[in-house]
Every structure is written in structure tokens, then in C-alpha cells.
């Protein structure tokens, strides 16, 4: 038995063409979840197969790739995906946000503002923002077609009635270009404002659910809210214990078994840059 030789960026050309067609339609219909014939990848479903297929389809040999998970470049799955592309596409990699031309991410948008020359690829577990309110695809598809988003507003308002605020902290739904309500993937709502008017092209890949969607550059992305309960992001009383910033999303680190905590940037590259350590 001989080990097979793989094509540039692993996928065969026919698969790439199919994914590329879906990406273009997704860009032309911002926020709409375009179905695509997702392939089985050599990593498990739920571990970034959608993002990997999108990245593989947009990558060129000249690209510099950054991969993050939870904002960090050195989390195990980010390391594994980066390694996959080094092996199959031979691309250069970086941890520095501003050096990357393609960034694949799970659960965060980098703190460093993105530019027109960059593409941000999100890994998406459940692309359908209405899924937790209505499990049936046949129903949610009709709701999107009719622009019927009442159930989502009712759900958010029930939160306000019960808790005094909207109790959704991540995967916070937003409306793209005043038409489709979409799921920005499980980023904390802290990152939602970065989606709005972003100069970079943002692509979303859901492999298991077989959907691709997009937010083109400079596109209005409005997080759902109410006039009397405007959208708000998380705030911390602490600043980052390493770099001192108050501007970033903080992770809580448990230091001992007596409840001692410290707070550090989830974006490891941003933290290093702020400290002047790179």
C-alpha cells in the first residue's frame, strides 16, 4: 500500500470549485447561509472542518496564515490546523495579526483591527441563529425567506423580563446589511462590534452543517437589541495582569485552590504586542 500524494491545500480541484462557488454566492447575499457539499476532512466534524475547507479554498501559496483558537495561537487545535496547512499548502505562518493575510479563528476576533488586505475565516458549529428556537431546518429556512424573525425578538425579550437584560453572552445574533439575522459563531458578544464595518472580508464555514456564509467588507452588522435595552458588551473591573490593557477580552486564570484569580488577555498576540515582547 502506498500513501497517496495530496493536492495543494489538500482538497481536490472539483471540491474547491464547488466551495468557491458557494463562497461567491455567500458574499453576494450577505448573511445568507449558502449550502455546500462539505467533505469529510482528516479532522473531526466540530473541530473546524468548515473553516478548514473555506481556508483551503481561498489560500494561495503566497499567503501568510494565522490560526487562533480562543484568541490564542498556541492552543492545541490551532496548532494542529496550522500544521495541517503548512504540510498541505506549504504556506508561511505567523502569530502576528498584522502580518497575516488569512486568519482562521475559533471563538474570537483579534483585538488588533483588521485591514482590507486580510481575510478572516470563522469556524462555525451551528450556523443557524434560530436553531435553538426551532430545531427544524425546513421551518427556519422559511423564516429566513419571509424575514420572519419575531421568535428571536420574543426570546431576547423574555430574557429581559426574567433577568433584566439579554442573557446571551456569545454567538450573539446580529442582522447583516438589514436583511439576514445571522450567527457570528460562538465569539463572545464583546467581539460583535468588530464585525460591523470591518475592512476585511469575513467568511464563515460550518462543515458538519454544510453551510458557508459571509460578511463582505464595510457591511453593516447590527447586534439585535431593543431601544430601551441597547446592545452592550462585557466589561471587567480588572485590567490584564500581564500587559495592563483594559481594552481586551480577558480570560480568568485560576491560580490556586483558595479562589485566587488573575485576568489576562485572551488574544495572546495582542497581549505580547502591548507588552512590547515581540
Amino acid at each position: 500500500m502506498n500513501a497517496p500524494a495530496y493536492n495543494f491545500a489538500y482538497l481536490n480541484e472539483q471540491t474547491k470549485r464547488m466551495i468557491r462557488r458557494a463562497i461567491l454566492k455567500a458574499i453576494a447575499i450577505p448573511g445568507y447561509q449558502a449550502p455546500f457539499a462539505s467533505r469529510e476532512m482528516p479532522m473531526p466534524y466540530g473541530w473546524g472542518t468548515g473553516g478548514v475547507q473555506v481556508t483551503a479554498s481561498v489560500l494561495t501559496p503566497e499567503d501568510t496564515l494565522k490560526v487562533i483558537d480562543q484568541g490564542a495561537d498556541d492552543t492545541t487545535n490551532a496548532v494542529s490546523i496550522r500544521k495541517f496547512f503548512v504540510k498541505t499548502a506549504g504556506v508561511a505562518t505567523t502569530e502576528k495579526t498584522e502580518e497575516a493575510s488569512v486568519i482562521q479563528t475559533r471563538h474570537r476576533i483579534p483585538e488588533t483591527p483588521l485591514t482590507e488586505d486580510q481575510i478572516l475565516v470563522f469556524q462555525v458549529p451551528i450556523p443557524e441563529p434560530l436553531r435553538f428556537l426551532e430545531p427544524r431546518e425546513t421551518e427556519t429556512r422559511t423564516m429566513h425567506a419571509l424575514e420572519e424573525y419575531g421568535v428571536m425578538h420574543v426570546k431576547l425579550y423574555e430574557d429581559i423580563a426574567q433577568y433584566g437584560e439579554i442573557a446571551t453572552t456569545y454567538a450573539y445574533p446580529a442582522r447583516v446589511a438589514e436583511r439576514y439575522v445571522f450567527d457570528p459563531s460562538p465569539i463572545p458578544k464583546f467581539d460583535n462590534p468588530k464585525l460591523d464595518g470591518c475592512p476585511a472580508l469575513q467568511l464563515f464555514g460550518a462543515g458538519r452543517e454544510k453551510r458557508i456564509y459571509a460578511v463582505p467588507p464595510y457591511t453593516r452588522v447590527k447586534s439585535l437589541d431593543f431601544e430601551d435595552h441597547p446592545f452592550e458588551v462585557q466589561r471587567w473591573d480588572q485590567s490584564c495582569a500581564l500587559c495592563g490593557t483594559r481594552e481586551s477580552f480577558l480570560d480568568e486564570i485560576v491560580m490556586d485552590d483558595h479562589g485566587t484569580r488573575m485576568f489576562v488577555c485572551s488574544d495572546t498576540d495582542f497581549c505580547a504586542k502591548t507588552r512590547g515582547e515581540r
Binding site: 495543494f8 491545500a9 461567491l24 458574499i27 481561498v58 494561495t60
Partner: peptide, 18 residues
């Protein structure tokens, strides 16, 4: 094919996105 199609697609995609 693999390399040139990748280059061409990036241009097509950026054109559609902008």
C-alpha cells in the same frame, strides 16, 4: 491548475466582495 485557480479565485472573490 491548483495554483493558478487559487490565484484567479482570490481576485474573483475580492472583486465580488468589493
Amino acid at each position: 491548475v491548483a495554483i493558478e485557480a487559487a490565484h484567479a479565485f482570490r481576485v474573483i472573490m475580492q472583486a465580488m466582495a468589493r
